[in-house]
């Protein structure tokens, strides 16, 4: 089973952005940010593209596909 891993929390903290600020900028709820950062929710393609644009990163730098146990 594969799992999508993201570095959103790491990048956000590096850039010194709060969850509230990010929620306001991307027009999403704070709960959604928490869920994405904790790998409980995979964002839609639209939100993924917004996140890439927001952090000015490529998809490989923000998201990785991890192979889990079969």
């Amino acid at each position: 089973m594969t799992k999508v891993h993201n570095r959103i929390k790491e990048v956000r903290l590096q850039k010194g952005i709060t969850q509230l600020q990010m929620a306001e900028d991307l027009q999403i709820t704070r709960q959604t940010i928490t869920a994405i950062e904790n790998h409980k929710y995979n964002p839609s393609l639209e939100l993924t593209l917004k996140l890439l644009q927001y952090f000015d990163l490529s998809i490989e730098e923000l998201f990785t596909l991890e192979e889990g146990e079969k």
Partner: peptide
């Protein structure tokens, strides 16, 4: 309290 943060999004 929450400013311009929406209460509903794609996950909701």
């Amino acid at each position: 309290r929450h400013g311009n943060v929406p209460t509903v999004d794609e996950r909701t």
